[in-house]
């Protein structure tokens, strides 16, 4: 089966942004999927969503728009669940 790459824009809405704890939750969630998942901030920054240091390095504050790029058999599900964590659960803060 051919792998397909999907992208989705997700805006950070929790007041404190992607500080250490939300980043850890995001990485934990991303790591539960076999797809490769990357996060792009603006044009110049691309990090692995499964790397805590990468995610922290984004320094994404409230209102920051991030582009998630997933490739693999569970890519769609991965982005659905990540979006849910960021938008609906707002990292349980």
């Amino acid at each position: 089966m051919e792998k397909k790459e999907i992208t989705r824009k997700i805006t950070i809405i929790n007041p404190e942004g992607l500080h250490a704890r939300p980043s850890a939750l995001l990485v934990e969630k991303a790591s539960s999927f076999s797809s490769s998942i990357f996060i792009k901030k603006e044009e110049d920054m691309l990090v692995n969503a499964k790397s805590i240091m990468g995610v922290l390095a984004l320094g994404a504050s409230k209102g920051t728009s991030l582009t998630f790029i997933a490739e693999g058999t569970d890519a769609e599900k991965a982005l659905d669940e990540l979006e849910h964590l960021i938008i609906k659960r707002t990292f349980d803060e």
Binding site: G54, L56, A57, G59
Partner: peptide, 17 residues
């Protein structure tokens, strides 16, 4: 403060990764 903390964490992580 909130923004300051996030920026510092980002900068440090960027170096340490």
């Amino acid at each position: 403060s909130t923004g300051q903390h996030l920026k510092a964490l980002a900068r440090i992580s960027n170096l340490l990764k």
